[in-house]
Design a protein around this nucleic acid. Structure first.
Length: 844
RNA sequence: GCCGAAGUGGCGGAAUAGGCAGACGCGCGCGACUCAAAAUCGCGUUCCUUCGGGAAUGAGGGUUCGAUUCCCUCCUUCGGCACCA
């Protein structure tokens, strides 16, 4: 490379050396505020948001994969005439900072801000159009002041509350977790993979379940199907009825059922061992076995208790309830297959029509009474071998006998519908919906998060910190970081001391901090006005930019961030802070870049691809292009370090074609006949390919099909090399092709595009302020086309016809073909089908 | 078990209002340039073949002149849920 430089000192440097201009353009764009997004009512707005990173230390290839194609699309939208905002920031609170504090005895703040500085620098090397003036960092006091303010608004609205219950606890991270942050069958911590345990603790919650039903609606949202499905599964709506059963001693037990039509078949009840009425219902004779069973249940983990293949266990309480529809006296059992965390913690058991209840009934010799009769078979409660869970007619159900029970759920099912009507008339039950979705537990027993802005007074209980005392700052003088299961803030000598906003007496601060997902639930709003100290954001900014038009990021957040983000928007809407029902219209998720051996990249395995090294070797543009090219973006693929050479070759060939002055003189030996007519054809063909490419690239950008954008540009480049060989250089068609090519290249490879445009073509700075090229439809159209001719479904020949040829013309040309005639062997075709412009199919 | 997405060369992947399967690139092979290598450039590259052709888009069936694309049954992989009443 040094030799190249020496050679080219007197003329323009034509060797490809991205290091020579990438940093230069990045600095100039920033100095010129080229990507500054300001309100401009004369243009349609486009809010392109990509998920902000945690400042973990170094940018990895996954960040590039998420961010640079998103940037390319934002740039494309900008060239299409949108006023685009593409902000960036840091989700800067979180556990790794505390891990570093423990390990290196460094304050999490110092560690975090050092990382931010390094990562900002690395991000700048991407050449993305981030508007850094809108940068927001969630651990800045000016940011978390408003995180706290939002907490208080939620509290005042009754959407934040404190409650003692059994909660998920990660023994490694030493903190509680939200239900969403516990993963999979093994119930492990989403962050560290450690199996969680249950702890009975008093914690702060957000009432997300209030929005359960609304969160199931995705109307007008262009979100991936699997994200919507995942959220729908997570919320887990079931429709049915709640019914009140009375015990013999007069207590009410409410149950939830999706099958009220089987009420007449309820032959016993089951309560969760944790149900508050268990002790009351248990008779003295049964007290011993029930308390032993409860103790046993408590010892087991959730995984043990909820294991699907587990043999059912349970004990009889000695108590009885009255089935409200037929006054039958039915025994109440206690069993751990009924969970306190779902429904009411008690069920009516219908063994004839529920497999779980059936297994239980058979084990303990309880009555089985069929109440749904399938077509053509008579069920016998004493001999049936499994529960019948399908459709049929109601039987043994008094006045309801004969009512059809279909496979429909809820009120759509005539049997369920009729019984619910009856329950409501009799006031023994009502139509009801149950969700598996839980309220969001936001307390974390950790230091590096936004302090929950509440104080507790002996006399006045919990109260929010007055707004004028916000933010509640984290102290700098903490020395002990060891996780104890309680926030390090609790052990600070003075931090927790405060006064009650009501009486002015001593009050103790809440020492827990907020789940960092709280910070990221509103960062898209802080980008609107990151330094506003009067409000979380300006209304004018909100009204112009929101909602987010395109949101990109990882799909691992399906049931976490993406659900919190929607909940938060709805809660804010109900407080009059935001407008509209959803924060983001369009969502797209990139896949994952795996390591070359197809495994997940991780520091511990040492298989991480470092973007910095690649940037040094190839330049940012090549990395950007390769990340767009090497896989379907929304799917991801294993990294291929050889593969990048192909993209690097393409970028170099782009550079060579547009900078090599020799390109204007065709080499004598390779140029074919230079007659005017053939040059005309070459020019026309070039122009056609250029305009066809605009069409394809535009379509693919709109649809996030980044890999085919690059292929199309590669093909067009190959075409241009051929046109150069044929002597097209210097013609108007060549010049047009050059301009359009660089414009289409600009979103993908912003530096080389600028260098070629401004320096080599001598066009007005900046390429990034140019409009996207428009398609000349007439130029894009083919004159003549080659279409295949099939005989009995097999391609036997290809014919060339004018593009606008009619059916008859195509047909006669096809049949006139010698090859086709040979295959026909003089026979008359039975049928000839002409698909205009596509194919001829001859049937013999 | 339920919900969702996806199965195409050695590899990443193209092509779906039904119409030339394998674009583009990697890898591989041959050639040019070179003392040599790298870089670069050119040609070839789904499989089988008796060189006429034949087979092939996870498997099997269906609709059709024609199916990677639509329908049915099944298999596999990935993601979510799961003793959820």
């Amino acid at each position: 490379m040094t030799t190249n430089k020496k050679e080219s000192t007197e003329t323009k440097d034509i060797s490809f050396n991205p290091q020579a201009f990438e940093a230069k353009w990045q600095a100039k764009w920033e100095a010129d505020k080229l990507y500054r997004a300001v309100i401009d009512e004369s243009k349609p707005k486009h809010y392109a948001l990509t998920m902000l990173p945690y400042p973990s230390g170094d940018l990895h290839i996954g960040h590039w994969y998420a961010m640079t194609p998103s940037d390319a699309r934002a740039r494309f939208m900008r060239m299409r005439g949108y006023n685009v905002m593409f902000p960036m920031g840091f989700d800067a609170f979180g556990l790794p900072a505390e891990g570093a504090a423990i390990k290196h005895n460094i304050h999490p703040k110092i560690w975090t801000y050092q990382n931010i500085e390094r990562m900002e620098k690395q991000m700048r090397s991407m050449g993305a159009m981030f508007d850094w003036e809108r940068e927001a960092i969630s651990s800045d006091p000016e940011y978390y002041k408003w995180t706290q303010w939002f907490f208080i608004q939620l509290y005042k609205k009754g959407l934040a509350y404190r409650k003692k219950q059994a909660v998920d606890w990660c023994p490694k991270d030493n903190t509680t977790l939200a239900r969403e942050q516990v993963k999979g069958e093994n119930r492990v911590c989403d962050r560290c993979g450690t199996p969680v345990i249950k702890k009975e603790l008093e914690q702060w919650f957000f009432k997300a379940t209030k929005y359960a039903d609304e969160l199931l609606h995705f109307e007008g949202m262009d979100w991936p199907e699997y994200i919507k499905a995942s959220q729908t599964n997570w919320i887990g709506r079931s429709e049915g009825a709640s019914v009140i059963f009375k015990t013999e001693i007069g207590d009410s037990i409410e149950i939830f059922t999706t099958r009220p039509d089987t009420l007449w078949g309820a032959t016993f009840m089951v309560m969760s061992p944790e149900h508050p009425l268990v002790d009351k219902i248990t008779t003295p004779e049964n007290a011993q076995i029930v308390s032993e069973y409860k103790a046993e249940a408590q010892k087991q983990t959730d995984i043990q208790r909820e294991a699907k293949d587990k043999v059912k266990t349970g004990v009889f309480s000695g108590g009885y309830a009255i089935n409200p529809v037929n006054q039958e006296r039915i025994p109440i059992w206690v069993a751990d297959y009924v969970l306190m965390s779902y429904g009411t913690g008690a069920i009516m058991a219908v063994p004839a029509h529920d497999q779980r209840d059936f297994e239980f009934a058979r084990k303990f010799n309880l009555k089985v009474i069929p109440v749904i009769q399938p077509d053509g078979v008579t069920l016998n409660g004493d001999t049936m071998e499994h529960a019948y869970e399908h459709e049929g007619l109601m039987i043994n159900s008094g006045a309801f006998n004969g009512t059809p029970a279909t496979s429909d759920k809820g009120l759509k099912n005539p049997a369920i519908n009729a019984v619910i009507k009856y329950l409501e008339e009799k006031e023994i039950g009502k139509h009801d919906v149950s969700y598996r979705y839980r309220d969001w537990l936001i307390s974390r027993q950790r230091f590096w998060g936004a302090p929950i802005p509440m104080v507790h007074c002996e006399k006045h209980g919990w109260n929010p910190i007055p707004d004028d005392q916000l933010p509640v700052l984290l102290p700098d003088d903490i020395t002990e970081w060891k996780p104890t299961g309680e926030s390090p803030l609790k052990f600070h000598p003075t931090w927790k001391d405060s006064t009650c906003p009501i009486c002015g007496e001593y009050a103790m601060r809440e020492t827990d901090t907020m789940d960092t997902f709280m910070c990221s639930s509103w960062y898209h709003l802080r980008y609107l006005s990151p330094h506003n100290d009067k409000a979380p954001f300006d209304d004018a900014e909100y009204n112009y930019w929101m909602p987010v038009d395109t949101y990109t990021g990882g799909s691992e957040h399906a049931n976490m961030h993406l659900l919190y983000f929607r909940f938060f928007h709805k809660a804010l809407r109900d407080m009059g802070i935001t407008e509209g029902n959803e924060p983001a219209i369009q969502l797209r998720n990139q896949g994952m870049v795996l390591s070359e051996d197809n495994s997940k990249m991780s520091k511990s395995k040492g298989n991480v691809v470092a973007p910095d090294v690649l940037v040094q070797k190839y330049g940012a543009d090549t990395i950007r292009a390769y990340l767009m090219f090497f896989a379907r973006w929304q799917q991801g693929a294993p990294w291929d370090s050889n593969g990048i050479e192909g993209t690097a070759r393409w970028i170099r060939r782009v550079w060579t074609l547009f900078t090599d002055s020799a390109s204007s003189t065709p080499t004598v030996d390779s140029a074919p006949s230079n007659s005017d007519s053939s040059l005309d054809d070459v020019k026309k063909n070039l122009r056609r390919r250029v305009h066809q490419t605009i069409k394809r690239v535009t379509h693919d950008f709109e649809n996030f099909e980044f890999n085919t954008i690059i292929s199309s540009l590669m093909e067009l480049l190959n075409e241009m090399y051929k046109a150069r060989e044929a002597g097209a250089v210097g013609t108007p068609e060549w010049n047009e092709a050059t301009e359009i090519y660089i414009k289409m290249l600009a979103p993908v490879a912003p530096h080389i595009a600028e260098e070629l445009w401004t320096n080599h073509l001598g066009k007005a700075y900046s390429i990034h302020q140019q409009m996207w090229p428009s398609v000349d439809e007439s130029a894009a159209k083919d004159d003549s086309i080659e279409i295949p001719v099939q005989i009995n479904g097999k391609v036997r020949d290809r014919i060339i016809v004018p593009a606008d040829a009619g059916e008859e013309e195509i047909k006669s040309t096809a049949l006139a073909s010698e090859t086709i005639q040979k295959y026909l062997e003089g026979k008359q075709p039975k049928k000839v089908i002409v698909a205009k412009g596509r194919l001829v199919s001859v049937v013999v």
